[in-house]
């Protein structure tokens, strides 16, 4: 079965060639991935496998770096760097800090 990432040759609309500056949030996620690679906690092929197993709905609805984030969270939990409970608690803490602005 074709995975959600396997797009080569599928029909699709015109390419939006307009420039897009990376946001600070995106740069931070990129930096986390680069640093974890340097420290041997994450590899490109692992990252791909986690992204490819996100499923069609998540793959198609999330932005590029949101996919990376979802994959990284799962990867670090699987490696025992932290637990799902720790992640959930931290997410709740940040949401409370951000107030009504956060999802």
């Amino acid at each position: 079965m074709r995975g959600p990432h396997d797009l080569g040759g599928l029909p699709a609309g015109p390419v939006d060639t307009s420039p897009h500056d990376m946001t600070f949030w995106e740069k931070q996620i990129d930096a986390l991935n680069a640093l974890l690679s340097q420290k041997g906690l994450r590899r490109v092929d692992e990252n791909r496998r986690y992204i490819e197993t996100l499923g069609h709905d998540a793959y198609n609805s999330l932005s590029y770096y949101e996919r990376w984030t979802a994959a990284l969270a799962r990867q670090l939990i699987d490696k025992g760097v932290f637990t799902q409970d720790e992640v959930d608690a931290k997410v709740a803490e940040i949401r409370a800090r951000l107030g009504g602005d956060a999802a």
């Binding site: 949030w25 932005s63 770096y65 949101e66 979802a70 720790e86 992640v87 997410v91 940040i94 956060a102």
Partner: peptide, 17 residues
């Protein structure tokens, strides 16, 4: 503003690390 769940998740990963 940080909007989506995954954006908050990204900040959470950063802070935990």
């Amino acid at each position: 503003k940080i909007h989506s769940y995954y954006q908050v998740l990204g900040l959470a990963l950063k802070e935990l690390l």
